[in-house]
């Protein structure tokens, strides 16, 4: 589904990603871990098409298409979804209105009829249960005055509505208490299928107890320096990142 080859990216001339290689197949869950500043969030942003990040080398193929060639909105319409680490507030625009605009543009791209208000609302009702989100929250201005947990839950709700093929969760666990973490993870797990894949970017192993990964990759200095199964995450939890840093730095 997704093939990343030798991906290099820079921000304002400073290289952040220095040759990422990754293969993600349908049905898989990949965890990207690593110390602060290793490039985890940059990878998520580059895949989503954030403009400040300049790709200097490499390629990304998504469902047979050159992902880097697509505008951010077309990547979304092709089925790439990024759950933001810091969801953005849009005053005066309700989540409902926002999502209806988004969903209908995605549908139009895919050659589907727009959903009318009735069908849209019934779809919303169905998906709301998945992430245990309250209707009241959805009629408020998007993310404005939401608690950290509400924002993250709303991200997963949007994911449920847009039904992406590749979901990238960027530190979705940050700022969540244990209950919110459980709710958010449950939502993600329910949305998993044999046709979709998930990339979980996280700093801590905690989230991976709920969203169990098939593969764990450690990112350090812009490269994947170690890959393994979920046991690798447990090892990192016990030992920290220093031993990996030492291994890598010694090899240089």
């Amino acid at each position: 589904m997704l093939t990343i080859k030798n991906l290099h990216a820079a921000v304002e001339g400073t290289p952040i990603l220095r040759g990422i290689n990754l293969e993600v197949k349908p049905g898989e869950v990949h965890a990207i871990m690593g110390p602060n500043g290793s490039g985890k969030s940059t990878l998520a942003s580059v895949l989503a098409g954030r403009e400040e990040y300049e790709v200097t080398e490499g390629e990304v193929i998504f469902k047979g298409k050159d992902l880097l060639d697509l505008a951010p909105e077309d990547r979304a319409r092709e089925g790439v979804f990024l759950a933001f680490q810091y969801p953005v507030e849009i005053p005066g625009v309700s989540s409902t209105n926002f999502l209806r605009t988004a969903l209908n543009q995605v549908r139009e791209y895919r050659g589907q009829e727009p959903l009318d208000a009735v069908k849209f609302l019934s779809l919303m009702k169905e998906k709301m249960k998945l992430v245990e989100i309250d209707q009241k929250l959805l009629s408020r201005s998007l993310n404005e005055g939401f608690s950290g947990g509400e924002k993250k839950r709303n991200e997963i709700f949007q994911m449920a509505m847009l039904e992406p093929t590749l979901s990238i969760l960027d530190e979705t666990d940050s700022g969540l208490d244990i209950d919110a973490l459980r709710i958010v993870s449950n939502g993600v797990n329910k949305l998993k299928s044999a046709d979709t894949a998930t990339i979980v970017v996280t700093h801590y192993q905690r989230l991976l107890e709920y969203i169990v990964p098939d593969y764990v990759h450690v990112l350090y200095k812009g490269q994947i320096v170690k890959s393994g199964t979920k046991d690798l995450a447990l090892e990192l939890e016990a030992k920290g990142y220093d031993w990996i840093k030492e291994e890598v730095d010694a090899a240089v």
Partner: peptide, 9 residues
């Protein structure tokens, strides 16, 4: 960008 990422032009 947030809107773009949800498929909105």
């Amino acid at each position: 960008f947030y809107c773009n990422q949800r498929g909105i032009s």
